[in-house]
């Protein structure tokens, strides 16, 4: 599903954020990216949905070399990739329902699809009763659920999560992880960057560890360190 071949990415004049990375992730896998701040986890994720381009190497998503894509086709790549962030990135002026509906509206989905899909996904993440609330009326965990709903409402092949539990307390984090696990079981490939030792140790999934841009460990059913 995702394949990096000898990928190197350097930000202007700095040490490489990613160095000669070779990784292959199969469809339906759940992968943790771990490592210290600045080790290249976020860069890895940003390369997969082509927010960044590497200086060297090739990146395949769903069998296609995404570096060959012309820029007008990049949005169509991103429709197959959902993204979740530490800071949720919700639109504060829109309700929970509108935030999720927005993701479908801006890719031109017809109204009847929006009307059926949005309540269904909000039900799935456990927010069926809060569709008309605004983000500031929700707890952090609930806001992250909205953001997961928005990322997943279009049923993407891949879900990228950049420290999704970074702003949440441990109990709430467990809830979010259950949700991501559930999404993974539907066949969606999940790639999650995290610092959260207990989550990684509990879930026992594939772990890729980065150190200053280099992949130093790639372990199935791994632990944090």
């Amino acid at each position: 599903m995702i394949k990096l071949e000898n990928v190197t990415k350097t930000y202007k004049g700095d040490v490489p954020a990613l160095r000669n990375a070779d990784v292959e992730i199969a469809k339906g896998e759940f992968v943790f990216l771990v490592g210290a701040s600045g080790s290249g986890k976020s860069t890895f994720l940003r390369l997969v949905n082509r927010e960044e381009r590497p200086e060297q190497g090739r990146i395949f998503v769903a069998g296609k070399d995404i570096l060959e894509l012309s820029s007008w086709k990049v949005p169509y790549l991103r429709r197959n990739i959902g993204s979740v962030f530490q800071d949720f990135k919700l639109l504060t002026g829109k309700t929970v329902y509108e935030n999720v509906a927005f993701a479908l509206e801006v890719i031109g989905r017809p109204k009847h699809v929006v009307k059926t899909q949005v309540p269904a996904i909000l039900e799935l993440v456990g927010l069926g009763g809060k569709m008309d609330s605004f983000p500031h009326e929700l707890s952090g965990g609930e806001q992250q659920r909205v953001s997961v709903a928005r990322a997943f409402v279009n049923r993407p092949l891949i879900l990228l999560a950049d420290e999704p539990t970074g702003n949440l307390d441990p109990a709430t984090s467990v809830g979010i992880m259950r949700l991501l696990d559930r999404i993974n079981r539907t066949g969606t490939t999940v790639l999650m960057a995290t610092h959260d030792r207990s989550i990684v140790d509990t879930m026992r999934r594939r772990v890729i560890e980065l150190d200053r841009g280099a992949i130093v460990r790639d372990q199935h059913r791994g632990v944090y360190e």
């Binding site: 820029s71 007008w72 949005p75 169509y76 790549l77 991103r78 429709r79 197959n80 990739i81 959902g82 993204s83 990135k89 639109l91 504060t92 927005f102 993701a103 801006v106 890719i107 031109g108 928005r150 990322a151 279009n154």
Partner: peptide
């Protein structure tokens, strides 16, 4: 800018933005 960021993220086409 926040809406634009989200639109790019969910794959709104360039002309749509």
């Amino acid at each position: 800018r926040r809406e634009i960021e989200v639109m790019k993220l969910v794959g709104a086409s360039n002309w749509f933005i």
